[in-house]
Amino acid sequence: MTLLDIKNLNLAMRSFEGETQILHGIDLVIERGEIWGMVGETGSGKSLTGLSVSRLIPAATGRYLAGSIHFEGRDLLTTDERAMRSLRGRRIGMIFQDPTTNLNPVFTIGTQLVDVALHAGHADPSILRLSSNASGRERKKAARRVAIEMLDKVGIPNAAARIDDYPHQFSGGMRQRVLIAMAMIGKPDLLIADEPTTALDVSVQAQILKLIHDLVAERNIGVLMITHNLGVVAQICSHVAVMYRGRILERGPVGDVLKRPAHAYTQALLNAIPTVHTKRGELRGIGDIMQEISR
């Protein structure tokens, strides 16, 4: 069955200026084993697409005009909040840009991971590898064991000792690893990563990308990777969708789209990146190109 199937998604957001349509008919299909890169500039709607999948758009301001999001055949837009909560953090994992604000500074890494593991184990006891009638104490112990395993897996050295550290004792890259561990603990089938490496140094970015890449290979999950960095997309994504003002302009396997872009905007994005081979004066901004296209 298709893992994620977004059909004709239309989203409008309400603000002081009135209601504006943000997403104009997004279609996207993600199968297991695929890493989809979603690229676009600030305000292109890429993050809101990701938030829509996990149904985190605030109901007070956001309104879906049309469309559906099917996750393994189940329409998420009609799923009630209670069922959604059990999907989030279990079947659908999420990683965000800033690893600092997404960890609670007053609890240890362990406390936060064990919490997630217990929550996930509540829905699916096999995660804790316990029978359903295990006592609370056994469950806690198992959750801690699972948390340590997960930290070890994402490459935290000496995980058993560091699990009782507080977030501020970790570097930025380590915190992002913790967040990935947290997202992976429920054995999700779909991982939504919103700019997971933007706040990190390039050397750390390379490690995190490798980690995500290996997780996909090992667990056969699907990933929606939201980023503005085409370099990141070129490195780990299997497919890419290029977004502009709430529409997908172009999509396809990374090799096709980035090597032979069909849309002028994609070409313009590629031309705007200074690589170590770019000569001075060669870069071109995008403003003029999009004006030409929209004319």
Binding site: V202, Q205, G231, G255, L258, K259, V276
Partner: peptide
């Protein structure tokens, strides 16, 4: 850039994500 002398500079250059999919270490 063309002839880095230190390991650290070499590592930085290697870690820089290039928008050319063929240069991906994973691919």
């Amino acid at each position: 850039f063309d002839n880095p002398q230190s390991d650290y500079t070499r590592m930085l250059l290697a870690a820089m994500p290039d928008p050319d999919p063929d240069r991906s270490p994973f691919r």
